[in-house]
Design a protein around this nucleic acid. Sequence first.
DNA 1: GTCTATATTTCGATAGAC
DNA 2: GTCTATCGAAATATAGAC
Lengths: 216, 216
Amino acid sequence: MLAKRLLSFTNLGQGVNVSAVTSPLVWEHVQPPAARRLLTGAVDAFAERGFQATTTRDIASRAGMSPAALYVHYPSKERLLFEISLYGHQAALEILTKAAAGAGPADRLQGMVSAFTAWHAEHHTIARVVQYELAALSPEHFAEVATIRRAISALIERVLADGVADGSFAVDDLHGTTLAVLSLAIDVARWYSPSRQDPAELGALYADLALRMVQA
Amino acid sequence: MLAKRLLSFTNLGQGVNVSAVTSPLVWEHVQPPAARRLLTGAVDAFAERGFQATTTRDIASRAGMSPAALYVHYPSKERLLFEISLYGHQAALEILTKAAAGAGPADRLQGMVSAFTAWHAEHHTIARVVQYELAALSPEHFAEVATIRRAISALIERVLADGVADGSFAVDDLHGTTLAVLSLAIDVARWYSPSRQDPAELGALYADLALRMVQA
DNA sequence: GTCTATATTTCGATAGAC
DNA sequence: GTCTATCGAAATATAGAC
């Protein structure tokens, strides 16, 4: 009954686990190793089944530990979610900020959408937790990641506004178009599976589509 | 801890309930009224908290009944989800099929994207269950809705292919662009709140964006 | 820091009266 | 067809030994 999450719109298999095990390299800053194993196990479990359907026993088991050992490193299941969500949001913002440093609005938008999209594909397990488990955060923890979300949204809206100002973009509804560009990249976390497409290729496709959406 | 679901990318309030109570008119075919009250209660609960976080007590309470009364009308919580998911998929396919009967590819795509997007906004509670609770279905029930999902995907891919064939569209990656157009509309279910935008206006905006994405 | 064992709560689903 | 009462399972988290 606890089937795995959907992998594509038409779905390529409810029972197929295409979620690669989260690379430990991404979480090198988490110490000690036992805490890191729990965290990467939680990422995989949350991405596969969702936060509510994931048990602490499942997370501990993926880390090769007993259920009780989890509480030595994290005070609760929600705290584990928060650590993942916070780091994921910070990483996504950092990727986008770096890509925002381009020449003209078109170049910047191209770089931002391709990087943001590729991140959602490359780190689709983290991205799923980031984008779809916000409601499971405590109000205080949610408020913290919401700040980062506003910064991400503002970066996209800024480049579109700049493009309109210098005449390279033609956008009627600035806020609506910003949301649409974000949507396109975010929804990748819902359907992406590593076997389908290379993250960089997908990023290039989506950057092209975003440019078409806004270009004069 | 059981906070409500995200409403927009930057989120306008984890604790704010913008989910309008599901209109009973949509479920007129469900009889008797007690079964319908349970079903609409389940739609609202699943959309707000997700399937796993929703208790049968919550659903029964929304229908003004005791927990046990639910099982007179539905054999399990999963069956309730399946009824919602099946009807929602059928309704979305029907909307899209009607809109697919246009003149040229451009007109057809415009009509399909605006209708499909507006449906996801207008019925965003049902759409959330349809798009984000697939993994909670039994394998048999999932297979049934997956058939409908493939039909929906095929309708979009068809109009894009027709547009490429007659020269009105310029699309490099047919499958990838189909997925992107679907993504745009589906992600509406994640962030939409009735106070933000009129469904018809949003549909018009997204139809314009989709046309820009594919036009020669 | 990890284990076994368990306290405590809550859930999906059922029994049986009316 | 709805109720009260409850069963049995499973969950989060804790206690205490090592």
